[in-house]
């Protein structure tokens, strides 16, 4: 009997799933070596059947998406029980990703923006309800939790595959490792390992040249004319997250003239990606007087959103104070 494989999304965008499909022919290797036991995006298996499975009967579950609702948390716990190996797959599951930026505001404000805005006709200021009486009965919705959490803040995680989404060549490499393990040709990597990524920073993979140590201005891309294709973007005055971000993508974004926005999460040895970026950026600014420093920093008008674009939910502070206070 082939070992079982599962993939599940919680609060996710589906890009992680698409990235898995993008391994193209390799999908067939997956099929050849595993029985796909649960994968809502690609096949019809219902939650109930997962509940009926024996504990630890799934060899490996790739879990993508963050924990935003009680339903997400329930599924995380269920799949933890059913799986021998639980992999936090993609930035959302590992560090909250961009949806984790919601942690900079409160849950209430999410509802206000979504249900009272220019195109919404909602004079009574209705909000979705956890339980709602309709003529035929009661309809329920899973409650939204106060803040976005990462998978490892909810259950124990065996491996981490970073990236938003993980690059397909990296997914293929991870799959090869799993297949080798199944065939008895390789040992499992040590628990807690980061798979499908490099062990240095995006800057180390980036072919752009770095010559000057200081920058005297930070600009936004729409303020800069077409950029030099060979010089480090940060040196050209554009904020780039490369210095604090884990390698593994072959510096995709800088390669096409866009800054690294940090999707592979904190570089190895970095506890807090945002703090590391703050340190790095402050180091290279060429200014000594408070006013001059502030002028440069004005070019970076949203520091928390920039430094923690992907890793807020997994950072040391995790969320805005008011949002955290709502959790209880």
């Amino acid at each position: 009997m082939k070992p079982k494989f599962a993939m599940y999304w919680a609060a996710a965008c589906g890009g992680c799933e698409i990235a898995v499909l993008n391994i193209d022919e390799k999908v067939l290797d997956l099929d050849a070596n595993f029985e796909v036991a649960f994968w809502p995006a690609a096949m019809d298996v219902k939650y109930k059947e997962v509940e009926a499975m024996e504990d630890e009967s799934i060899l490996v579950t790739l879990f993508n998406g963050g924990i935003r609702t009680d339903e997400n948390e329930h599924m995380a716990k269920l799949l933890r029980r059913k799986s021998k190996l639980l992999v936090a797959f993609g930035s959302c599951a590992n560090e909250g990703c961009i949806p984790g930026l919601a942690n900079l505001g409160t849950r209430e404000s999410i509802f206000d923006c979504a249900f009272d805005n220019p195109s919404t006709e909602n004079p009574a200021h209705l909000r979705p309800q956890i339980a709602c009486q309709v003529p035929e009965g009661v309809l329920t919705l899973p409650p939204l939790q106060a803040v976005v959490r990462t998978l490892d803040q909810v259950v124990e995680v065996d491996y981490h595959v970073p990236g938003c989404p993980p690059e397909s060549h990296q997914i293929a490499a991870v799959l090869d490792v799993l297949i080798a393990v199944v065939k008895g040709e390789a040992e499992l990597p040590p628990k807690g390992a980061v798979l499908g990524a490099g062990d240095t920073s995006v800057c180390d993979e980036c072919p752009r040249s770095r010559d000057v140590k200081h920058i005297d201005k930070l600009s936004r891309i729409q303020e800069l004319p077409v950029l030099d294709t060979e010089v480090c973007l940060l040196e050209q005055g554009l904020m780039c997250s490369g210095p604090a971000t884990r390698s593994g993508c072959n510096s995709r974004c800088p390669n096409v003239g866009a800054p690294c926005i940090g999707c592979y999460g904190a570089a190895p040895g970095v506890l807090d990606q945002g703090a590391r970026l703050m340190a790095a950026i402050a180091s290279v600014i060429d200014a000594k007087e408070p006013e001059a420093i502030d002028r440069v920093l004005d070019g970076l008008p949203d520091p928390a959103g920039t430094f923690y674009r992907f890793s807020l939910a997994h950072s040391l502070l995790r969320a805005n104070r008011a949002a955290l206070a709502e959790q209880e």
Partner: peptide
């Protein structure tokens, strides 16, 4: 510089 940037963040 770090302090000023940290304050903003």
């Amino acid at each position: 510089r770090r302090h000023r940037l940290m304050q903003r963040t």
